[in-house]
């Protein structure tokens, strides 16, 4: 049995998450990944924004920072640059990272700052009661799209890839072991890394869209998930409504804090020249 307790603040339990929420599965996968890498609790700073998933840092025994809505990556940028030896993990949601915080998300990717972003995509604003988000599929109902959503969704992973991230992977809470591997790789990667996790929100999204129980929703994830390899052989029509999982980007390129450290060294060795 994996010993989760050494990473948890058990006195802060029970979790605020609803029964059937997928967020706990991600938490466990993340802790197993951290354990595999062998990071100590002191070496990790976990930063979050606002939303259900952003409550996660409260339950883990790291240096934890629960910030303002959308700004987790901005706060994390300061932590990482001021203490580059720290492993900085950002926990955020689809609304937090790609609506109100979209600017920080793309620019941290562009800079290739060594942050690991675990992005919980549940297609909805759960904490505030089920409002439409940038990843709510067209036609789905939310408390602010009562007639069905008219807006096309963001491709969150594609966005990070286009903006310059070093590592991008997409998984689901159905494939928890795959998820664990993705998170491990993302943390190990020197550079901006994103793991997009498709996770069900039975309370604020599933219920309104008659998607059944939490178990039904996870079963749907299983049925709709398509690996990258499989997806390559499918037509756009066949891919409609599917979730493509796998490592989408894994490249090595100059990382921001390392480049800055090099510059700083050069300047310090150069005396008296402006």
């Amino acid at each position: 049995m994996f010993e989760y307790a050494k990473y948890l603040r058990l006195n802060k339990f029970p979790l605020i998450w609803c029964a059937g929420c997928g967020d706990g599965i991600v938490l466990k996968a993340m802790l197993r990944a951290i354990d595999k890498i062998g990071l100590s609790n002191d070496e990790i700073t976990m930063v979050s924004g606002i939303g259900c998933s952003s409550r996660l840092p409260g339950y883990v025994d790291f240096n934890t920072l629960h910030t303002t809505h959308g700004r987790a990556i901005a706060f994390a940028t300061g932590v990482k640059i001021a203490k580059p030896e720290m492993t900085v993990i950002v926990v955020t949601g689809d609304g937090d990272a790609t609506a109100i915080g979209g600017n920080h998300y793309i620019h941290a990717a562009r800079r290739n700052l060594d942050l690991t972003v675990i992005l919980f995509n549940n297609n909805i604003y759960g904490m505030t009661g089920g409002q439409v988000s940038p990843t709510t599929p067209v036609g789905k109902k939310a408390s602010t799209s009562p007639y069905g959503n008219l807006e096309p969704s963001f491709n969150i992973s594609g966005l990070a890839q286009a903006a310059g991230a070093s590592f991008v992977a997409r998984g689901t809470v159905h494939g928890a072991h795959m998820l664990e591997k993705f998170i491990e790789k993302a943390i190990r990667k020197k550079g901006f890394s994103v793991v997009e996790v498709i996770t069900p929100c039975p309370t604020a999204y599933g219920r309104r869209n008659r998607m059944g129980t939490a178990v039904n929703m996870i079963q749907d994830l299983k049925e709709n998930a398509v690996t990258l390899k499989k997806a390559a052989k499918m037509s756009p029509e066949e891919l409609e409504g599917k979730v493509v999982t796998g490592v989408l980007v894994d490249i090595d390129k100059p990382e921001y804090t390392e480049e800055y450290a090099k510059l700083s060294e050069q300047l310090k060795n150069k005396v008296g020249v402006d």
Binding site: T45, V47, A74, A76, G78, V79, I81, L263, K268
Partner: peptide
């Protein structure tokens, strides 16, 4: 960068404020 400090131009004003809070917490 000459005194072991770090400068960053952020993507917006909000980010700049967030970043200094993060940096201060990191010491």
């Amino acid at each position: 960068p000459r005194v072991d400090g770090r400068f960053i131009q952020m993507e917006d004003e909000i980010a700049a404020m967030g970043a200094i809070i993060g940096a201060s917490l990191a010491g």
